[in-house]
Design a protein around this nucleic acid. Structure first.
Lengths: 190, 190
DNA sequence: CTCACATACTCAACTTGTTGACTAGGTCGA
DNA sequence: TCGACCTAGTCAACAAGTTGAGTATGTGAG
């Protein structure tokens, strides 16, 4: 029920097509809400019939037509209601951690490879987030930005994503060290 | 498809009833895989028909009978195959972050209250994790434990949970500061 | 000139996850 | 002895998320 709210929050930045929303989700919101394009399109349809958003079709010459969605006042109300509601604690589902939990009686080398891959992925995310941050700050330092910006929400959620990925990198490094030392010890004892 | 694997990983510790698994999930695995008891029971049934686990019924005098599940060799194989497979990057879904994203045009006071609540929740998780950690270490220091323990997987995933929640607490504190300063500024300017 | 990739979606089938209620006894404290 | 909570589940209905394919056009690189 909360993809709706994520979409509405994303539409606070102004009207957007489903396609652009999907990209925006991938860039900035993916850190705390992921979804496939299919989910988005389906949800946008429902939200339109529920009156939370309106669409206007823009005809384009050399591209398929697109529908630009924007928040209605009902949508804004709903979103405000949502911000005032209680929020369930995070739901994480991380296959890599399941694999690490079972690593001791599984394929340790493969798990180590997965951890290395994850670390690289996290590093790539960090640089994307840093670029986004620089763009938000637009030359200002953090203090100045926080004092003058219209919205601080996007910045705060970005910070969360950044520190999550940094934490990921640290944990990957630590786990690799542990698993490697362990491998060396087990080799020595045979 | 991966709740199965989480269940199998949990069964590496020995046979367990659905009820106990639900509790174990809540305590140690919830950090990277959450599910409701209903999901567990349904999945356990399926896993049994698929031959990944076997059940034996234990009759109890003063309590309802229970079924103890344990891994079959097919289950072990499956689990090893899983550890060797590729793992999709994390899927997080956090309503609180959606609310923070929309906070600027929503009910800021309520969002602040939610952040405070989340911080408390995270702190409670941290102490539970610390207790679990002390229990795993069993008087040893970390080096000694990592050198002698049969399994390090559970310890590594626990570390991830711990640092995730510590990061949460830090982010909550930072966000509250930002939102409070902002509130003060806005009040002053009206 | 072809191939990959971007725009901008739609449809269908399927698997997972969530919610709420129900059964049925036992223990423990006020 | 009443109510609250623990053990140990089951059932049904629904909501949400995933996967894979299909449509149709345009741009840019090699």
């Amino acid at each position: 029920m909360s993809l709706r709210n994520a979409v509405m929050a994303a539409l606070l930045d102004g009207e957007s097509s489903g396609y652009d929303l999907a990209k925006a989700f991938d860039a900035a919101v993916a850190n705390f809400w992921i979804c496939t394009p299919q989910q988005l399109y389906r949800e946008l349809d429902r939200m339109e019939t529920d009156g939370l958003i309106t669409a206007r079709t823009v005809e384009q010459e050399r591209r398929p037509n697109k529908r630009l969605f924007s928040l209605t006042s009902l949508g804004r109300e709903e979103l405000t209601r949502f911000t005032a509601a209680q929020h369930k604690p995070t739901a994480i589902r991380d296959e890599l951690l399941v694999a690490v939990l079972a690593a001791d009686s599984g394929d340790v080398e493969a798990v180590k490879a997965s951890i290395r891959e994850r670390r690289q992925w996290a590093e790539a995310k960090i640089s994307r987030y840093e670029r986004l941050r620089a763009k938000l700050l637009d030359g200002m330092d953090e203090e100045e930005f926080l004092a003058t910006a219209e919205r601080v929400g996007p910045y705060l959620t970005l910070l969360r994503g950044l520190s999550f990925e940094r934490d990921n990198v640290r944990w990957c490094a630590r786990s690799l060290t542990v698993l490697e030392r362990r491998g060396a010890r087990l080799d020595a004892s045979t």
